[in-house]
Amino acid sequence: MIHNAFSPSSKTYLFVHGAWHGAWCWNKVIPLVQAKEHKAIAVELPGHGPDNGRISQISLNDYVNAVVKTANDQIGPVILVGHSMAGIVIAQAAEKLGSKKVSALIYLDAFLPRNGESLFALVEATLQHLPPHASRKPYLVENIITAEDYQTNWVNPEMAAQIFYHDCSDEDKKFALARISQEPVAPLATPLSLTDEIYGVIPKYFILCTESQDMDKTFLSTHVPCEKVYTLASSHSPFFSMPEKLVEILTELK
């Protein structure tokens, strides 16, 4: 189906992957969004995918600039969709792009920041707000391995499938596990600079994955006011396990 750039109902979605992942995680989502006559682009963050040569030198600004460039290459406003870690990336990118360029921010089981917070600070706050009745799960923070120079980290390969993909097909697990990579630490430790005048006025939506086994993000869904909070009974990777349901939510936003 050919995307009609002049359709009044057509939207442009930019999908930003989370830590240790790449643009490949949106492989099922992109064609489904395009089939609904919207434009859909998966952004490859620096240091991920084929471009992983200088991963230890990557900064949050590098991430943000990649999203900003892709957004500015598009005609008209864009919707930024950030998964997990990419919540901080789309927030800072939106601040840089402005409210005329970014029509909405969608946080897919993602870190939803306030001004001055880093991802590490958000992780700490989330752990402190876990519901007391939460069942013991292999939380991600217990399975992150940090390099000796503290410049990069990665997920314990023996636990990655359970943490990220427990409800995914064996085929999708194999596909993902062959591609997850190291993550630079610097972007995760950098505080964000956000304003009420720009970031604060852009409509935000949160999709909470209620079966996610990396970390319960219920707290994050309330950390910053959102237009609406959706729930999916999925793992942290609904782009693999239930892409159709995910796309239904993404494309119903006005």
Rank of each mutant, 00 (worst) to 15 (best):
M85G: 02
M85P: 00
Q92Y: 09
L119W: 13
S118C: 07
S135D: 15
I145A: 02
D109H: 14
Y139A: 09
K100N: 15
A93M: 07
K100C: 06
L130D: 05
K101H: 11
V123T: 00
L112S: 13
A93L: 08
E148A: 12
A94P: 02
I90P: 02
S103A: 12
L97H: 00
E95N: 04
P138Y: 04
P132M: 12
P113K: 14
Q128I: 00
G98Y: 10
L140N: 02
L112F: 02
Y107R: 04
K101A: 07
A121C: 08
L80R: 13
V89Y: 09
H129G: 01
F111A: 14
D149E: 12
P132L: 12
D109I: 05
L122H: 03
V123E: 10
D149P: 11
I144M: 14
E117D: 09
L127H: 07
I79C: 02
F120I: 08
S118P: 05
Q92K: 15
Y139L: 14
I88S: 11
I106C: 02
E148L: 14
S135Y: 07
G116E: 15
H83M: 10
S84F: 07
L97N: 01
D109M: 06
P132F: 12
G98S: 13
I79Q: 04
S99E: 15
I145N: 05
I144N: 00
I144D: 01
R136F: 09
D109A: 08
